[in-house]
Design a protein around this nucleic acid. Sequence first.
DNA 1: GTAAAAAGTGCAACATAATGCTCTTTTAGT
DNA 2: ACTAAAAGAGCATTATGTTGCACTTTTTAC
Lengths: 73, 73
Amino acid sequence: MHHSELVTVLKERREALGITQAHLAELSDVSLRTLKALEVGKGNPTLETIAKLIEVLGMELKLEIKAPQHDKQ
Amino acid sequence: MHHSELVTVLKERREALGITQAHLAELSDVSLRTLKALEVGKGNPTLETIAKLIEVLGMELKLEIKAPQHDKQ
DNA sequence: GTAAAAAGTGCAACATAATGCTCTTTTAGT
DNA sequence: ACTAAAAGAGCATTATGTTGCACTTTTTAC
């Protein structure tokens, strides 16, 4: 999962939960300015910023050994 | 997966591949200073730094909806 | 079509991640 | 034990992520 893909997933999850950027920003203690920039693919968020957001979004990061090409779907 | 856990996985993967910090730093275009700090849990790496490292380590990030407690093993 | 809410942008200040250099400590091999 | 390689730490500099404020644009609801 690359940067743009991660951004898309975060945004879609927020929308699926039906919460605004402002609300997510407040719940996650990430500034609204930072969240807005992040969702349009600006910048290079820190692990902490991502962690705060996904915690509120009920998500989790996993780090795995990449599957060989022929195993991909 | 939280910060310390991610750090542990990265370090163990590097060691499993039998490459030094210096070598990984060179291959991933992350400075040795940054890699060293990261592996001892100092700081708050950016997504780009993590992405560079896991690319070389043959790993990938996944972002998933958190499984309910009773589904965890 | 209008109004309100939500989303996106520009700018500047502040905080801190990334980096290079040098040095110390730890680990691995003989 | 000795040596060399690898890992970790302190410091200063540079680059950039985070934030708040004010404003514009887009979307949503009536």
